[in-house]
Amino acid sequence: MGDERLAIAIDSASEERPHRVCCRLCGRPLTGADSRRTGLGPTCDAKLHPPGPDIRSRRHEVAQDTLPGIDEDL
């Protein structure tokens, strides 16, 4: 079993063109590694997964009463 030859020559494997991957939403060919991995182009990915709201922009000051026993003069 260890002396058997490979069915495909190694030189012929390098001549093959890479498999063409298309966007699952719009069908355009994908070129980037991340896009090919997810199956979505950057534009379609942004449409399906919009960025979340920035919670830091929703902070606001709250008026509070002074705690009893604490001097305001400090």
Rank of each mutant, 00 (worst) to 15 (best):
E61I: 15
S57L: 14
D71F: 03
A46P: 07
K47C: 08
E61V: 07
P50N: 01
R59V: 13
E61D: 14
P68A: 03
E72L: 01
D71S: 09
S57P: 05
G52D: 15
P68Y: 03
H49L: 11
P50G: 04
P51D: 09
K47V: 07
R58S: 04
D45H: 14
E72Q: 03
H60R: 12
R56G: 13
G52R: 12
T43N: 08
H49V: 07
L67I: 11
A46K: 06
A63C: 14
E72I: 00
D71P: 10
I55E: 05
P51R: 15
H60S: 08
I55P: 12
H60W: 04
H49D: 11
D54T: 14
C44H: 01
T43Y: 05
R56W: 09
G69E: 12
R58L: 14
D54S: 06
P68G: 02
L67Q: 13
G69W: 06
S57Y: 02
P50I: 10
V62H: 03
L67H: 12
A46E: 13
I55W: 11
L67A: 07
D65S: 09
P51W: 09
R56H: 08
Q64L: 13
A46Y: 02
D45N: 13
P51I: 02
P68R: 00
P50Y: 01
L67T: 13
R56S: 11
H49M: 11
D65A: 10
T43I: 11
P53R: 03
T66L: 15
V62Y: 07
L67N: 05
H60Q: 12
T43W: 13
D71A: 14
K47I: 10
T66H: 07
P53N: 10
G69F: 13
I55G: 04
D71W: 02
R56N: 12
R56E: 07
P50L: 06
S57K: 12
D54R: 07
R59M: 10
H60T: 03
D54P: 00
S57N: 08
E61G: 02
